[in-house]
Amino acid sequence: MTAVDHIRPASTRVAIARLAEEVVGRTVGVSATRGRGRWLTADGERTIDGVVVGQTAAGATDVDLHLIAEWPARPLPPLADQLRWELRADAASAGLGDHLGEIEVSVHDFKLPGEGGEEGS
């Protein structure tokens, strides 16, 4: 977050993207895709990698999480549900629960031991 962000309140979509970034960052077994330039949200002078937010016609904010799974392998569907659940909980706590639409999770690659760098498909 830059100094400018403290002065200017984040839009709903950026605020939700930041929450998504935090949820992914604290979840063991996954990391956000980085370095591809395709899946990100602009947040002032920085980018939120692996998170794409979009506004629906109904006004809800849909979230797409683009992730790399990490070793040791965990079953991915429950991990994806955990991410959804935590993001919804965090959004509700932040007063953004009503704005949050669908949350789609895409796992692009599996990072194995000894494998360096990024990235997904």
Partner: peptide, 22 residues
């Protein structure tokens, strides 16, 4: 008894490279 990839909670997509490595 396993978790589905698509539920009312949302969709989960798995890329080819994930399946290839597993």
């Amino acid at each position: 008894g396993q978790e589905p990839l698509e539920s009312e909670k949302g969709q989960t997509n798995i890329a080819d490279s994930v399946v290839t490595k597993v």
